[in-house]
Write a protein that binds this DNA or RNA. Structure first.
Length: 432
RNA sequence: GUGGGUAUAGCGUAGCUGGUUAACGCGUCAGUUUGUGGCACUGAAGACCGUCGGUUCGAAUCCGACUAUCCACCCCA
């Protein structure tokens, strides 16, 4: 019988790695908390139309990357991103009628049917935040500040912030026209995809890697020159606020973003350390989305952070978020009576929150000691007929090899707890 | 969806000008005289060499298809 394998583009997060995920998630939650964001949890699948309307009918994500499933005559789509569902949930539950701005964050997995490559999976995990209600650039600065703070606390390096403004729909319309009239005379010289882009999404032309297109596009008009007064002022203020906060950024007029809902501010945190898919975090403002989804016009913005990409970057840089959790005490029983006692003791220890283990393999003393060492047990305690008869046993501190005798009375658990805490404190003190 | 690379034990690799029992390191398990781990030593388990088909007396080794995986394009986190 052939072994069944996991679907293409998915990943197993094994016990060792999941420690690190937990550490990362913990850090994301606490940092989001300090910025006043609360967690929201939404369904994994939504009505397909939500993404068509929210993400945009013409986007690649909607056109060719969605996992749409039909079951019992109902059709749904696995979320390809978090924003549409989150805004839907906020609208459906009236969150936008509460005090504004509303600040929510989420940690969830997204699904896109793409060809997997470095930093790109078909199921991937995203941390994201959405802030709804504020049109002010201060909101932009705050959201960007949160992303920056997270990246700093996680400890990644070489991640640069790129920002741009793609204006409001009015600015964009004028800009598209300008682009088209600039590129039209060169239409035949452009690469195939760019000829398509010219009709579909002319802003993408500027991002083409083909040297020919790059050369042609060298003197193309820049969106920033086509912003209306309000959009321009918004962008200027944002830049000033970022500078004031000491957040370094570069203005990159080529940032476009592939999701239709973005307006004005768009930004990316990018690294070159993990290959071609270097956008660790991407987001921006989407002032039109809420109305698009049937709510009262409400300005909003947010970002999504690719957790696999973040961890990938971290690992490339030699950083690991957490050490594997060990075992506080491993009890080594010898003989049946001792094994029974060991079971009892481990159960009591666990009740006090102490990680305790004992033999479930019927191994020899020597083999058990080896095992205790492998799982990183801090203490071991051999339990045999002698110990049971004398009512005391020897506790061994594995790292130092130090031994001390403890009574096996009903105070044993609290006594061990004291020893263990003292040991941790001493370790922490030594580390300082 | 397009292009290129790769596919040998749990992991990392060697073998690949075709020729008897597919090798090594790590890991796993057991043991090194009977009550104490890390080191060292001994031994064991574990691979129908991705799948299917072809060439051949004979294929892990050559050819083809498929699948998976990696990298890149596209696009995005």
């Amino acid at each position: 019988m052939a072994l069944l394998k996991r679907p293409n583009g998915t990943e197993d997060i094994l016990p060792a790695a999941s420690r690190e995920w937990q550490a990362l998630e913990q850090l994301l939650r606490t940092t989001a908390d300090t910025y006043g964001f609360s967690e929201i949890r939404i369904p994994t699948f939504e009505q397909t139309e939500l993404f068509c309307r929210g993400v945009g009918e013409t986007t690649d994500v909607v056109q060719k990357e969605m996992y749409t499933v039909t079951a019992r005559e109902s059709t749904f789509t696995l979320r390809p991103e978090g924003t549409a569902g989150t805004i839907r949930a906020m609208l459906q539950n009236g969150l936008l009628n509460e005090a504004l701005p509303q600040r929510v964050y989420y940690i969830l997995s997204c699904f896109r049917h793409e060809r997997p490559q470095a930093g790109r999976l078909r199921e991937f995990h995203q941390f994201g935040v959405e802030m709804a209600g504020s049109p002010h650039p201060a909101a932009d600065a705050e959201v960007i500040g949160l992303a920056r703070q997270i990246l700093e606390r996680v400890g990644v390096h070489n991640v640069e912030l790129h920002i741009n403004s793609i204006g409001c729909p009015d600015c964009r319309k004028r800009y598209h026209e300008a682009l088209r009239s600039y590129f039209m005379p060169h239409r035949e010289e452009l690469c195939e995809t760019c000829q398509e882009r010219l009709d579909k999404n002319p802003m993408r032309l500027l991002d083409c890697k083909s040297p020919v297109c790059g050369e042609i596009g060298k003197d193309a008009p820049v969106i920033l020159d086509y912003l209306c007064e309000e959009c321009s002022a918004h962008f200027e203020k944002l830049k000033a606020l970022l500078t004031e906060q000491g957040i370094a950024f570069t203005v990159d007029p080529r940032i476009v973003r592939g999701l239709d809902y973005y307006t004005r501010t768009v930004f990316e945190f990018v690294t070159t350390d993990i290959g071609a898919q270097g956008t660790v975090c991407g987001g921006g403002r989407y002032d039109g989305l809420i109305a698009q989804l049937g709510g009262a016009p409400t300005p909003a913005l947010g970002f999504g952070m690719g957790l696999e990409r973040l961890l990938l970057t971290l690992h490339k840089q030699g950083t690991v978020l957490s050490e594997p959790k060990g075992c506080d005490i491993y009890i080594v029983p010898m003989g049946e009576a001792a094994a029974d006692k060991a079971m009892l003791l481990t159960a009591q220890l666990r009740q006090e929150g102490i990680c305790a283990q004992t033999d479930v393999m019927g191994r020899s003393l020597r083999a058990q000691m080896k095992y205790a060492d492998k799982i990183g047990a801090r203490y071991t305690m051999v339990l045999g007929d002698n110990e049971l008869a004398q009512g005391e046993a020897v506790l061994k501190q594995m790292q130092s090899g130090e031994k001390l005798t403890v009574a096996l009375d009903d105070k044993f658990v609290s006594r061990f707890s004291d020893i263990e805490i003292a040991d941790r404190l001493a370790g922490a003190a030594a580390a300082l």
